[in-house]
Amino acid sequence: MDLKEIKDLMTAMRKTGIQKLIIKKKEGDELQLETQVSSNISSVGFPSTEQNKEQTFFHSPPIHSSENHSPLVKEEKPGQHITAPLVGTIYHSASPDDEPFVKVGDMVKEDTVLCIIEAMKVMNEVKAGRSGKIAEILVENGHPVEFGTKMFRIV
C-alpha cells in the first residue's frame, strides 16, 4: 500500500466519521488508522491547518516482549456501560435549546431516555435498560458513535 492510498483512506475516514480502520493482509502485515479529536496532540500524524480539528494517526500493533514486563491494564470503573445500539450521531437533548435528557448524578429507571441517536435522518431514542445512577457520560453531544460505543456508565 503506497502513501497516496493511505492518504485517500484517511480522507475517507474523516468524511464518513469512521474512527478506526484496521487492514490486515494475508502476508501478516497490518495497518491501523485511527482518528482522534484533541487540542493537544503529541503524536506523529498529519497536522491539520487549524487547532482542535480531527486528526488521523498511524498506530502499529503493540510489541510484546518476553521480558518480565506486565502488560498495560486499563482499570475499568465500577458500573455498567450503556452502549450504542447503532451507528449514528448522538444527541443529549431533543433539540439544541432543550435541557439534556440526563446529567451525571441523575437516577434513571429502565425506561428513561438517555439520548437520541440520529441514523439516516431517523431519530432513535436510547433507553437506559436498567435502573441506577448516571456516573459518567462518555460521548459528547453531536459526536458520531459506532455500534458498541460506550456512551454512559451507570452504577
Rank of each mutant, 00 (worst) to 15 (best):
N52M: 13
A94Y: 01
M120I: 06
G105S: 02
Q19M: 12
A119V: 05
S60F: 14
Q55S: 13
V126T: 01
D2N: 05
V87I: 13
M13R: 02
T11F: 11
F152A: 08
G105A: 01
I41C: 07
E146I: 12
V108I: 10
Q55N: 08
A12R: 10
G45N: 07
T49S: 15
I23M: 06
M151C: 07
E75P: 00
S70Q: 14
N68V: 02
L72V: 12
E34D: 04
L72F: 08
L3E: 13
H81Y: 12
S66V: 12
K4F: 11
H59W: 09
K53E: 14
E76A: 14
L3S: 11
M1T: 13
S48W: 01
D2R: 03
R130I: 09
E54T: 15
S42M: 14
S131L: 02
K74L: 13
V108Y: 00
R153S: 05
I117H: 04
Q55I: 14
K26G: 07
H143C: 11
T16Q: 09
V102R: 00
E27P: 03
V108D: 03
D111F: 04
V155A: 10
H81K: 10
K109A: 13
G148F: 06
E146C: 11
Q19H: 06
G28F: 08
D29C: 02
G28Y: 00
C115S: 08
D111Y: 04
K121Y: 03
L33P: 10
E99Y: 05
K7I: 15
T89C: 04
F57Y: 14
T83Y: 04
V87H: 07
S43P: 01
Q55H: 07
L86C: 06
N141T: 12
E99H: 04
T149W: 02
T83F: 06
E118Q: 03
P85M: 06
L72Q: 10
V73S: 13
M151R: 01
M123P: 02
I22E: 10
I6R: 00
A94I: 11
T112E: 03
P100K: 00
G88S: 05
I18C: 10
Q55G: 10
I23P: 00
F147G: 03
L138Y: 05
I154K: 01
T149P: 01
S70A: 15
H81S: 14
S60N: 14
L21A: 07
P96Y: 06
I63S: 12
A12T: 13
